[in-house]
Design a protein around this nucleic acid. Structure first.
Lengths: 135, 135
DNA sequence: GTCAATGCAAATCCTTTGCATTCGG
DNA sequence: CCGAATGCAAAGGATTTGCATTGAC
């Protein structure tokens, strides 16, 4: 495991921004800052960071993956029309006060997804969604 | 808007099953029952049902869409490893009792997504994720 | 008979893989 | 130097689109 400017850039870029970029947005940002990095490496680095639990992936309803540095203590509100992603503090959500009009969003509980590892997969180290070799 | 055996099949198939199938699984099921239906039509019919609010779409971390008949009163737990999707009653979730070990799932709040329409998009009829003509 | 719906084939688009090259330690 | 990391080009795979055909009303 070697240090490279590409790994540094992806990690720090995600750590410093709060707007849940796509892989392509990270490449664009790199270009602006004259960092050379290809989309292939961005995807590879992102998947490594996900495996390490440092980054998480949010997929909008048009099947586009957005990435977020893991800071905990917040959940994501995702707009099914414009794709906007908003952070909301945990405590606001998990209480009896929660309702389907939340932070301006119109929500349907069936359209809420809790992602994690199920009982059977808890002990699995490799995640088939980020490490195809485990398939 | 005409009635066809294809529309009937997709609607009733989703209404009767509780296992969140993919579009391809719906086609397989149709074949078993000797209903002729192509994958293209399944996707088109599913997107229409989503626009009508009768069906919702759950995307697992490997970017595969699963479909669910809208019955309300439940949220989805999604396994990031095996892709399993489990229904959990609303009341169990939105209370102070919620924690990150839930129904055997190991959850991270940052990996929880609330999908809906944001303030700006509430009044939009067309949804860009299901109706590309509104782009 | 009309025109909406279907379904094949092709296109699209995001993401991953193969492989030769580069470069960190 | 060695081998991990990169990045191009190509492949992969889910979903959508174009268009001729079918079939509901």
């Amino acid at each position: 495991m070697r240090n490279t400017k590409q790994k540094d850039f992806v990690f720090n870029n995600l750590k410093l921004r709060y707007d849940h970029p796509t892989a392509y947005q990270i490449v664009s940002d790199a270009k602006l800052k004259n960092i050379e990095i290809g989309i292939t490496s961005v995807y590879r680095i992102l998947n490594d960071l996900i495996k390490k639990g440092l980054v998480c992936k949010i997929i909008t309803k048009d099947n586009i993956a957005h990435y977020d540095f893991v800071r905990n203590n917040h959940v994501h509100l995702v707009c099914n029309n414009c794709g906007k992603i908003v952070d909301v503090n945990n405590e606001e959500v998990f209480s009896d006060k929660f309702n389907c009009n939340f932070h301006g969003f119109n929500l349907n509980t069936q359209d809420i997804a809790f992602f994690g590892k199920c009982e059977n997969c808890k002990t699995v180290t490799n995640n088939k969604y980020t490490n195809k070799s485990s398939k």
